[in-house]
Amino acid sequence: MQSFVYNGQSARVIFGSGRLAQLPAEVDRLGLKRVLVLATPPQAEDAENLSALLGARSVGVYSRATMHTPVDVTEDAMRVVSDKNVDGLIAVGGGSTTGLAKAIALRTDLPQIVAPTTYAGSEMTPILGETKDGQKVTQSSPKILPEVVIYDVDLTLTLPVGMSGTSGMNAIAHAVEALYAKERNPVVSLMALEAIRALARSLPLIHDDPADRDARADALYGAWLSGICLGSVGMALHHKLCHTLGGSFDLPHAETHTVVLPHALAYTAPAIPEVIEKLRDVLGHQDPAAALFELAGRIGAPRSLREIGMPEHGVEVATERALANPYWNPQPLERDGIRALIARAYAGEAPAI
């Protein structure tokens, strides 16, 4: 018998096609009168259109959301929140925009409505990673979890093929690590396996035909489940490495997860034989780490840290920082093994157990 604790996350989820049209009704349902629409600079025009849709309910747009949620950007946004007497937040975009909304909510407890345009999954978690002085610090609080998430498949149809692939691999990483997290439980494991299955079958289809609506819906479904997994259990080696690499070298978030995932799984594999057996079934491959490495290649995603901007000296830096304040992991962390893992990921070599 397995003993476990399961914590359900209470977020309202609206899923389907054309569901963003329900946003004004959701704003009204929450009793919000002065919402601020958040975006990254490239999505500023879309945010302005959304603000216009909300009419008098919106006080305007803040379009400086940035990857890795820098604290200085959050502090700048907080001044706008205060000056405009904002009573709610709307985030339409990827993990950068969602991260900014969550950072503001942590400081203010303002309600959030998030409409993801990628497969990041962070909208389903009470977890926030913030970057300051080159260090990324993760924390959790009920204030961070959005109140409403609108999954509109239509919003993902224009997501570029490359970003679709890495965003989907990022989601798979959340689900894979949930299978062997310290707080794992049967409910989360069911969702994790279903998420991996949905994403692994849909990402190649999206790569071949970005307009495949059924594949897009399948991927968004998998991303939703992966987000629940990430928000329900703790993190281990994979996420520690990605936070270290992203914060230290300002590497792109989803691409970093894509590169590191097969290597982190291979490192941990000897300690999790039951998980490996389940992944063999889901991925249809005797070596799940190799399967994930091959999947990244199939969809044209980067497979080396070098090609996404990490300097060669970063191997030593990342090794030291990953071991300085390590996360729990079923396979104990040993310096030589971690350095070899990062070196293979840097060079784009296949994962090795």
Rank of each mutant, 00 (worst) to 15 (best):
E147K: 14
E255W: 07
S51E: 13
D154R: 13
R321N: 10
G168D: 07
G16H: 13
A52N: 03
A215H: 11
A200K: 09
P142K: 03
R57N: 10
V27K: 04
T244P: 09
M169C: 13
L225Y: 00
A322T: 15
E274W: 13
A101T: 02
T131E: 11
F293A: 12
D28G: 01
E194T: 14
G93V: 00
S140W: 12
E255P: 07
S226K: 00
E130R: 06
T66R: 07
G31T: 01
I272G: 14
T98A: 14
G168E: 13
S248G: 03
L190C: 02
F4C: 09
P262G: 08
T156P: 12
P210E: 14
Y151N: 14
S141P: 05
N7W: 05
L265R: 10
A192F: 07
D209I: 00
L225T: 01
R321I: 03
V71S: 06
E316D: 15
M191G: 12
E147D: 15
G95Y: 06
A175R: 02
V61L: 05
S10W: 14
S164W: 09
A219G: 10
T158K: 03
A52S: 09
D87M: 08
D109K: 03
R34G: 11
D250Q: 08
L261Y: 04
S226R: 00
A236D: 11
Y151C: 08
V61D: 05
E123H: 04
P146V: 03
R280A: 13
G18R: 00
R34V: 12
Q286V: 14
I104D: 09
I127H: 15
D212T: 11
C229V: 10
L237M: 09
H239A: 10
A340W: 01
V161I: 12
S96Y: 03
K132Y: 09
H313A: 07
V137F: 10
